[in-house]
């Protein structure tokens, strides 16, 4: 009889966890496949705020303005001279650093000082977009080369190296010293 009074075997209620890793792997692979880590890149710009119609825009002296015109065929007029797109970069540097750098001799044709220097890009309504981007890119590269020079004076390899070491919220001194002032002009009405 003693055999009948068997001990009740209490099984522990356990969820098998050995397949947990497999399930996690499956999910992992799904997200691995769907993830795109490509970062969005582009040329950043800040549009001018909307102007009050009664107030005229501030006047800019003609010598402080570097005018770039891009026409319908994608041809570039740089200060009223036909020019190639890849000439713009050097011209922008010359314009901005005219009276600062020893390389240039403060000519009457170009800006008085970097603070006053403005680069203006004007297009037609039919101008192809990619020519506009190439032009804008060249202007930005002109500024980037200036900033590169300033960064090297501060002992950095390049402007990007300088920018990378800046802490969050720290002022970008190079950017402050020479500001990129690019004006996007509206096309003439009636075109």
């Amino acid at each position: 009889m003693a055999g009948l009074i068997s001990k009740k075997q209490r099984r522990e209620a356990e969820i098998p966890t050995s397949s947990m890793a497999d399930i996690a792997f499956l999910l992992l692979i799904f997200f691995l496949v769907t993830t795109t880590i490509d970062v969005d890149t582009g040329i950043g710009m800040t549009l001018p705020p909307k102007l009050d119609e009664n107030v005229d825009p501030p006047p800019v002296k003609d010598r402080n303005m570097l005018k770039i015109l891009v026409n319908t065929q994608g041809q570039v007029l740089l200060e009223d001279e036909p020019s190639a797109i890849n000439m713009i970069r050097a011209e922008v540097m010359k314009h901005v650093l005219n009276c600062v750098s020893s390389q240039y001799n403060c000519s009457e044709e170009y800006s008085e000082n970097p603070d006053k220097a403005v680069v203006s890009i004007k297009t037609d309504r039919q101008t192809p977009y990619d020519v506009y981007i190439q032009t804008l890119d060249e202007v930005w590269m002109g500024y980037f080369e200036i900033w590169d020079q300033l960064a090297r004076q501060r002992g950095f390899a390049s402007y990007n190296a300088y920018k990378d070491q800046l802490a969050e919220g720290q002022d970008n001194e190079i950017n402050k010293e020479i500001k990129a002032q690019i004006s996007l002009a509206e096309p003439d009405p009636g075109q």
């Binding site: 040329i43 950043g44 297009t123 039919q126 192809p128 977009y129 981007i133 890119d137 996007l184």
Partner: peptide, 26 residues
């Protein structure tokens, strides 16, 4: 291959709306 006209129109609208930070994706 787009023409600037449309881009300029959109930019004017963005100025009206006050969204001034833009980025030409490239």
């Amino acid at each position: 291959s787009s023409e600037m006209g449309k881009v300029i129109d959109v930019q004017q609208e963005l100025r009206e709306a006050g969204t001034l930070r833009i980025n030409y994706s490239s």
